[in-house]
Amino acid sequence: MAQRAKRFTERSIKGEAKRQGLRMVLNMIDLTTLEGSDTPGKIQQLCHKARHLHDNVPDLPHVAAVCVYPNFVSLAKRELAGTDIKIASVATAFPSGQTSLELKLTEVEQAVDAGADEIDMVISRGRFLSGDFDYVFDEIAAVKQTCGTARLKVILETGELGNLDNVRHASDLAMEAGADFIKTSTGKIKPAATLPVTLVMLLAIRDYHRRTGRQVGMKPAGGISQSKLALHYLVMVQETLGPAWLDNQWFRFGASSLANDVLKQIIKQQTGYYPAADDVSRD
């Protein structure tokens, strides 16, 4: 897996392909803030950034979604009214998932009621690691039911699963239980998303699709802050799942600082100069 993953990083993406790729990356970002210190002001800034990535560069696509805690969903909803930027909310006792199913479902329900388009839930890693796969499955299925029309992203927190076999198993479990997306990480645990882990999950998606015909999305999250790396992820998706997944409907990046790096690369492509860190907005 590591060797195959390395091959993607050896693909060289230049010129027009790079331009297209960078814009695609921007459009796939779930612009995220998930801090204890988040305030309404911070969320407003984030939403503004989502709408106005960089005003000096015309014709930029916008990000796919913003990703916030449930208590900020209604605020974000107001801020992004009139756009098609989605509101994603983490739920189910993010990031640890250590609470009762009842509380988790209530949290999901509240987030959905407040207007969340997408729910990013965490699986119960403790239950998974103790072999209680039925519990994990039932929990995901229950959350999915509670989501209603909201799309469900299932965070495996791969950094806590210990090995790639577990990642594969958890991916299969989540998809069978109804996940619309599978997602690597909360961003709170290291390692977060890596190419090999994402590759294992993409292969699981491919096999699931082959078996059932249902398309499931993928979201690597955490640790992807360089546009070059993001492009390598796109190459990996292209060569593993094909172009049907190269759309923000089916592939997302969970990231907070990636957008700025992509912007800098786009500015570099347009102007020919490397921009400084302060040439893009810090939010």
Binding site: M24, D59, P61, H62, T83
Partner: peptide, 8 residues
């Protein structure tokens, strides 16, 4: 341009 979708 908010609704503009990039393509590959």
């Amino acid at each position: 341009n908010l609704t503009m979708k990039p393509t590959l």
